[in-house]
C-alpha cells in the first residue's frame, strides 16, 4: 500500500473567506489524501514552518483578493528552507495578467473558478507523486 499524499491547504494574507479552501480540503480527503488544514491569515513564515513540520508534498493556497501576489515570495522562502521539492498550487480569483509571473515563480498549477473536482484532485495527486519522487 502506498502512503497517502499529504497536502497543506492554507490561506495567506488578510482575506478570511475560507469556504473555498474548506471545500477543496474535503475533496482531497474524499480522494484519500491526508490534508493539513489551517485557518486563513497565515504569514509566509508560517506556511514554511507548517510545510516543514508536516512534510507535505503539495501546498494549496486559496486566494480571492490579491493574496496570490504573495506567492513569489513564498516560493523563494520555501527554496531557502530546503523545501524546493514541494509543489505549490493556487486556487481562486487570479487575473490573467498575473498568470505568467506566477508560473515563472514556480507555481505548478492555477485553478480558476469553474475548475471541477476531478481537475483539482487529479492534478494535485499527480503533483504529489512528483514531489515525493523529488524529495
Amino acid at each position: 500500500m502506498t502512503a497517502p499524499s499529504r497536502v497543506l491547504i492554507t490561506k495567506i494574507g488578510f482575506d478570511g473567506h475560507d469556504r473555498g479552501s474548506r471545500i477543496v480540503a474535503a475533496y482531497l480527503r474524499d480522494a484519500g489524501m491526508e490534508v493539513v488544514y489551517t485557518g486563513p491569515w497565515q504569514e509566509i513564515a508560517d506556511v514554511v514552518a507548517l510545510a516543514t513540520q508536516e512534510d507535505v508534498d503539495v501546498i494549496g493556497v486559496s486566494s480571492l483578493a490579491t493574496d496570490h501576489l504573495l506567492l513569489p515570495e513564498l516560493m523563494t522562502a520555501l527554496k531557502e528552507a530546503g523545501l524546493g521539492h514541494v509543489q505549490v498550487v493556487l486556487g481562486g480569483i487570479v487575473p490573467d495578467q498575473d498568470i505568467d509571473g506566477l508560473r515563472a515563480a514556480g507555481v505548478a498549477a492555477i485553478f480558476h473558478p469553474g475548475s471541477t473536482r476531478e481537475q483539482i484532485v487529479d492534478e494535485i495527486a499527480r503533483l504529489a507523486g512528483q514531489a515525493r519522487s523529488a524529495a
Binding site: P4, R29, E34, G39, L50
Partner: peptide, 14 residues
C-alpha cells in the same frame, strides 16, 4: 482517517 477513503482532515494544529 475516513474508514471509506482513507483520507483525513488534520485540523488539531489550528
Amino acid at each position: 482517517s475516513s474508514p471509506l477513503t482513507g483520507g483525513a482532515i488534520l485540523g488539531d494544529r489550528i
